[in-house]
């Protein structure tokens, strides 16, 4: 495993720690999109089905279990925790799941490496992950009040895929058999979706202010 990949994973993990920290310490999930959290949970469930039939490393297994458990944990807080659930922006978080889930499912059925149940589900998870942040970005645009932790959460989530791109470039040159065109295309789309956010995030950071969206 190269340093880009490790840094990417740590950035991903850190973004989840931030969100749990925000919810736990402030007992609030204001500004967080439950739709995005549900989509990520669906991503992890469909991708990590391979926990049942393939083993790569202890590191991978532990990380997969952490991602699964934490995404269900976040959802539990937002849905059932007495105080946290009252802070959820239900009226603003109106993005419909099917707008993303259906096209990703159709695309996974058409463009995949192999037409098998596990492979199509895996491909679906790759496509869905690329766009799962959209409800969160829409919510951000609507509410405009972005607290520091939410801003940092989205920043590290975006940084994770950007670091993965560096990891893919590195592996492309060092491992001749490593060619994952589907993943690369989806990863580029995913990182691209953050471009706008990154721009405003860095601008606010440079000015020493809280994140402000136009």
């Amino acid at each position: 495993m190269n340093l880009f990949r490790l840094a990417g994973d740590m950035s991903h993990l850190f973004s989840i720690v931030l969100i749990l920290l925000k919810i736990y310490t402030s007992k609030s999930c204001a500004g967080l999109s439950m739709k995005t959290q549900e989509l990520y949970t669906l991503v992890f469930v469909t991708r990590y089905l391979d926990l049942f039939y393939s083993y790569v490393s202890l590191y991978n297994t532990v990380m997969k279990l952490i991602f699964l458990a934490s995404s269900f944990g976040i959802l539990w807080y937002m849905r059932y925790h007495k105080q946290v659930k009252q802070t959820y922006d239900r009226e603003q978080d109106t993005f419909r799941h099917y707008i993303l889930v259906v096209p990703c499912a159709v695309l996974a059925l058409i463009v995949n490496n192999e037409l098998s149940v596990t492979e199509v589900l895996w491909t679906f998870s790759i496509y869905l992950e690329a766009v799962a942040i959209l409800p969160q970005l829409v919510l951000l645009q609507r509410t405009k009040n972005v607290d520091n932790l939410t801003g940092q959460y989205i920043f590290f989530l975006g940084a994770y895929r950007a670091l993965y791109i560096l990891n893919w470039i590195y592996r492309y040159w060092t491992e001749p058999k490593y060619r994952q065109y589907l993943v690369w295309a989806a990863g580029l789309v995913q990182t691209g979706l953050y471009a706008d956010f990154f721009y405003y995030y860095l601008k606010s950071w440079q000015a020493g202010e809280k994140l402000r969206l136009p």
Binding site: K64, F67, W122, L182, V183
Partner: peptide
């Protein structure tokens, strides 16, 4: 050997 057989990323 499928191109995507190495699913060693997260």
């Amino acid at each position: 050997d499928s191109l995507a057989s190495t699913k060693d990323e997260l």
